[in-house]
């Protein structure tokens, strides 16, 4: 393999039912930065059925070029047709970097593709940088529960592949003035390429309660005072698009079910936002949430240990601060319209 033959940065643009996933736009934001550093182009690759008209969105969010593969056999995601197409284009066009969103689709597709094109893959990267000397991609990811960070390189194989979880990178502002460069890539797929049979597709509108997967958690402790006050937290979580979690004290008091518990005897979470409401911050609790990207704590006790791990602390009563916050968010939303 001659590494020098591999040029440019690619983002796999994941769509579901024609809807481009948020994480793919975020990856275009990061991909653009990497491509500029390398002096190369950023290409988005989108696979699906009847999705041609979606391609320009990818340009608006930073792609210099889009490769579209529109085929009825790519309608609903299945592993083999998507792998076959993506691996074929990678082998033909030879990008040096391929970024894929770490969704339940990306985490199925990326390892299969990386094995087919015989290269390395680094999962769930939280930072991506270019080593200016070697042009290698420096892929940093948490290891061992997040306490240790490891920077991974893939020095002798191309492309350098990595997955990134939703919410880690930031998308660029949408810019409709960008020049469209869209290529339709013809592929030969036959029904035999689909080696599984989809019997049923079920959409679940009701979100499953899995606090480990939530990117925003509004968490309540003893300081919430009574079970009815959890409704306030529910309202706030709903407004922010998150879930309600709790400390052991609130669970033991019977205010909320056990599957919401964060901490050593509960679940370990690392959301983008952890809003600790009336939680003192015992070490057993902190162990389960301190890796959160942003921690905001509200507690009446100014000496509560939770403030030691918080990015922002508010000394105050949850039952007063939370309604005020809900109101402030309502005002902000109204002014955005």
């Amino acid at each position: 393999m001659s590494i020098a033959n591999y040029r440019g940065v690619w983002v796999f643009a994941e769509q579901r039912g024609g809807e481009i996933q948020k994480v793919s736009l975020e990856l275009l934001g990061k991909g653009k930065e990497l491509a500029e550093q390398l002096g190369e182009n950023l290409t988005a690759v989108i696979l699906g059925n009847g999705i041609k008209d979606r391609a320009k969105e990818l340009i608006y969010y930073g792609a210099d070029k889009v490769i579209v593969v529109d085929n009825e056999l790519l309608d609903i995601y299945t592993t083999e047709p998507y792998t076959k197409v993506l691996a074929e284009i990678i082998n033909e066009r030879k990008p040096e970097i391929v970024l894929i969103g770490a969704t339940s689709i990306g985490r199925d597709l990326a390892p299969r593709v990386s094995a087919r094109v015989a290269t390395g893959l680094t999962a769930d990267c939280t930072s991506l940088k270019i080593d200016e000397e070697t042009r290698n991609l420096l892929m940093t990811r948490p290891a061992f529960g997040g306490n240790i960070m490891a920077t991974i390189i893939c020095p002798n194989h191309r492309p350098q592949m990595s997955t990134v979880r939703p919410g880690v990178m930031q998308k660029l502002a949408r810019d409709e003035s960008r020049t469209l460069d869209i290529e339709e890539y013809p592929v030969q797929l036959t029904p035999a390429d689909i080696n599984v049979e989809i019997l049923e597709v079920v959409k679940e509108t009701k979100q499953k309660i899995n606090i480990e997967d939530a990117s925003i958690l509004v968490s309540g402790g003893r300081g919430v005072g009574k079970p009815e006050n959890f409704k306030l937290l529910e309202e706030l979580a709903h407004k922010l698009g998150g879930l309600v979690s709790a400390s052991r004290a609130a669970v033991d008091a019977g205010w909320i079910e056990h599957n919401r518990q964060v901490g050593q005897t509960g679940k370990t979470v690392r959301p983008d936002l952890y809003l600790a409401c009336g939680i003192s911050g015992a070490i057993q609790h902190v162990a389960g949430m301190e890796e959160s990207e942003c921690i905001i704590a509200v507690n009446t006790n100014p000496d509560a240990p939770i403030f030691e791990v918080a990015d922002l602390g508010i000394v105050g009563d949850v039952t007063k601060v939370i309604p005020a916050l809900i109101e402030e968010l309502r005002i902000l939303k109204a002014s955005n319209k």
Binding site: I148, T151, F307, D311, L312, P323, A324, E328
Partner: peptide
Amino acid sequence: SPTKVKASFTKGAKTAGKVHNVDAR
């Protein structure tokens, strides 16, 4: 192994953020 660990480091201990003692609004 195509991928190699170039460096590993512990996340620096987090320093506490600012604590505000103000009214709810």
